[in-house]
Write a protein that binds this DNA or RNA. Structure first.
Lengths: 215, 215
DNA sequence: CGGACCCTTGATAGCTTTCAAGTCAGGTGG
DNA sequence: CCACCTGACTTGAAAGCTATCAAGGGTCCG
């Protein structure tokens, strides 16, 4: 038997793995809550289709989106008893729901399952570290360029990107305001780096220049 | 047998766990490199004594410190073949070095070991997410207050903190400049929140106010 | 066609950075 | 033991980037 719990993140999109724990598949509409911050962390989730955001809220309402999750990606893995982030859909989405205790029990018996889980956790860690570097040390332009390139890579788009999130979502992911995101889009457009054929679509015209910004 | 690979982070300081893989114990002086960014990731490390920082560098020299690691804490766990961060000592330190492949092999046989590794990874992930929230959505004052309280908690200090890092280290962790960190210290002092009996020591005079800032 | 929401743009303010001196402390060598 | 010297820290002034406040314009959907 080859494929186990979850396919490796990169391969999952194309070849969904057979899984030991199938889990429920739940369909969600757009902008629906999957779980809230401080809810008991009883499940682990995998995006089957659509897009999900995980985010944290400060008491005064400031929001930081921790990550966007696309098809094949996993979220909701916690070490403690409660979720430290909330999760909502950006688009209509199908999400696989797996009971956490079952996964943990299984990972004690099955080394390969445990290994896969560890890979998922360290992969999320890697993303989070990249995110922190961006938030700590990059300018607004660099942040937006990084987001666009990341989206292109993860959705496998050539030049025309479908962006499932609002400007507000991008702002809360990038640690900026909605106005700054909008101005930066306009600036990129004027510089010929991108075109904006419609809201929710971005055409990358000079990928090299964007990559040079990100470094 | 009760204690396995690594004690849980919180307990490790007081009762170092017996371990399946003892690993080499290496002594380092102050400001020495343990590994560099892009080095092959062949080991996992645990701080026995002293303090270690892990950080990432941008090509133009901008630096983001990803985390400070104190006694009992683990660092260097990677999913890929190379280290994405570098690690240096802040103080003279003793570090336990464990071969990564041995850990991975062992975690396939031993469910408890795998579980412990997963807990370590998700714990690091949690810290990284807190860090990202701070970098994305908090002011300079809030960031410094959070760092001081975090140090107090992790080193178990009552009111008088020993800070092993320079202002530059703090700045690179907090996503600020050294001047802003210094000014914020001065401001806290004037507001009666802290006193600075010497460099590298901070006396917390109004912990409640600091906690209120962090929220 | 109307309305609501999202997005863009403009003007101004504010926080943090940058640039530039100084000050202080700790360590070394005389 | 003291003087010096170097690196770390602090402080000041000015600039810059992003946030805030405030309209105005588009677009999608009922």
């Amino acid at each position: 038997m080859q494929s186990v719990l979850l396919a490796p993140p990169t391969a999952a999109i194309r070849q969904p793995a057979a899984s030991v724990i199938d889990g429920l598949r739940l369909s969600h509409g757009r902008d629906e809550t999957i779980f809230d911050q401080d809810d008991p962390a009883e499940h682990v989730y995998q995006v089957i289709s659509g897009c999900v955001r995980t985010c944290r809220l400060l008491r005064d309402g400031r929001r930081q989106i921790e990550a966007f999750h696309f098809a094949g990606e996993t979220f909701g893995l916690e070490v403690g008893e409660t979720h430290r982030v909330s999760a909502q859909t950006l688009t209509p989405a199908v999400v696989r729901v797996m009971p956490r205790h079952a996964l943990e029990d299984l990972s004690i018996e099955r080394g390969d399952v445990a290994r896969r889980l560890l890979a998922l956790a360290t992969d999320n860690l890697r993303r989070s570290q990249d995110h922190a570097l961006m938030l700590g040390r990059r300018s607004a332009c660099e942040r937006l360029a990084a987001l666009l390139l990341d989206l292109a890579e993860r959705t496998g788009a050539e030049a025309l990107l479908d962006v499932p999130m609002t400007r507000q979502d991008m702002a809360d992911y990038l640690g900026l305001t909605i106005e700054t995101v909008s101005r930066t889009f306009t600036q990129f457009q004027h510089e010929g780096l991108i075109a904006l054929p419609s809201l929710r679509k971005v055409l990358l015209r000079d990928r090299g220049a964007l990559e040079a910004m990100v470094g």
